[in-house]
Design a protein around this nucleic acid. Structure first.
Length: 358
DNA sequence: CTTCGGCTGACGG
DNA sequence: CTAACGCCGTCAGCCGAAG
């Protein structure tokens, strides 16, 4: 049976959340900022359409957004815990209407609506989802509905905000041919540049090349996937969410430094946050990494894997300090951002106890 | 030959 | 005048060492 897959995307989500609790800013340009410890430094997480009209975009440096802003513009620092709260209510609604939901992020999810009654039934469910999200929570979202994840996602972008765009199986090909290769999932700036150099822009143009061409260009796995995508083929399932594979915390330090003590202070702070989280998640980790972003914005990582799970904060910090020493001795560059990561998780501790008792 | 650890890089949100 | 620039998480792919 042909699958029916949906993608729900909450419109300019962080900004919409803020407007929800501060109705007086509705209608003004609203810009959500991820600040760093540096004065006036940060990046734009998201912004509403009034702000986009001023050419402000997500990912943009805060300094540039400030220049583009007008006197009306409201800048708000991101409040992740609040957005998570709102998001959870949205997912309750989604879970109510659909058994197979895969959360991609705080504001996005795929869902599988394959059913015996067919496409019309799925359309009806999508309308109900949009309705409940709006009536119960006051939020708008955009939904794309098609026969696989790739096209569902592209369809959701077709009509925004508060959109609902349907691409039936018979329409997939003509829908794709209206798009450029850069609209395909997984084609970022680097791949775009490689394709452009080969004179490839449109999806129809890309179809003139064999699979081997893409494999040589971007590698075995990605090449094969891109080749499929060009023809609208995407067999990825909607997967229930897996356990996290890694957990990390990063931050930009006050000013670039190579001072061991100063950098360790920052690492200590991050490690403490992370250690609290990981213990509350009842997870066990064996690998510790230090992530450094230097003044040239290059990322360097140092890792160590222990034979046994690491079970004290002191041990975590000790390993981090050794990794930092090793970095400082091997590199001359300044440290701009620093991060702490743990990975290589053991089975859930609660589960482990159960197995032991058994 | 396969697996694992360590690392970089691309990508998405 | 230009360049400016967060904080996550996933996967692919390479290399070398070990099983």
């Amino acid at each position: 049976m042909e699958r029916i897959i949906g993608l729900m995307d909450l419109d300019y989500f962080y900004a919409q959340c803020e407007i929800l609790r501060k109705p007086e800013i509705k209608g003004k340009p609203v810009v959500i900022v991820m600040p760093s410890l540096r004065e006036g430094s940060g990046a734009i997480a998201t912004c509403n359409y009034e702000a986009r009209a001023l050419k402000i975009k997500s990912g943009m440096p805060l300094s540039l957004a400030k220049k583009l802003s007008n006197s009306e513009t409201v800048f708000i620092n991101a409040d992740k815990p609040y957005y998570l709260e709102v998001s959870q209510k949205v997912f309750e609604i989604l879970d109510f209407f659909c058994e197979k939901v895969e959360q991609v992020s705080v504001d996005e999810a795929y869902f599988d609506l394959t059913n015996p009654q067919g496409f019309d039934k799925a359309v009806e469910i999508c309308q109900k989802i949009k309705q409940r999200i709006f009536l119960d929570l006051g939020l708008t979202c955009s939904i794309g509905l098609s026969t696989n994840k790739l096209v569902a996602k592209m369809a959701s972008s077709e009509k925004k905000p508060d959109g609902f765009f349907i691409v039936k199986g018979s329409e997939v090909d003509s829908f794709l041919l209206k798009h450029s290769v850069t609209d395909l999932f997984g084609v970022g700036p680097k791949t775009e540049e490689l394709l452009r150099k080969k004179g490839i822009w449109s999806i129809s143009g890309a179809r003139n090349y064999p699979k081997s061409f893409f494999v040589e260009l971007i590698g075995e796995a990605n090449g094969a996937k891109l080749f499929d995508f060009i023809f609208g083929i995407d067999n990825r399932e909607v997967e229930p969410n897996r356990e996290k594979q890694q957990l990390s915390r990063m931050m930009t330090i006050k000013e670039d430094s190579r001072d061991f003590e100063i950098i360790m202070q920052n690492i200590n702070f991050l490690a403490e946050m992370l250690y609290k989280e990981i213990t509350s998640l009842k997870k066990n980790f064996k690998t510790v990494s230090l992530i450094i972003v230097n003044e040239k914005m290059e990322t360097i990582t140092k890792s160590r894997t222990a034979a046994q799970p690491i079970n004290s904060f002191e041990e975590l910090v000790l390993i981090e300090s050794e990794l930092l020493k090793s970095f400082l001795s091997e590199s001359q560059s300044m440290v701009r951002r620093v991060g702490v990561r743990v990975s290589n998780f053991d089975a859930d501790l609660g589960l482990q106890r159960k197995l032991f008792e058994f």
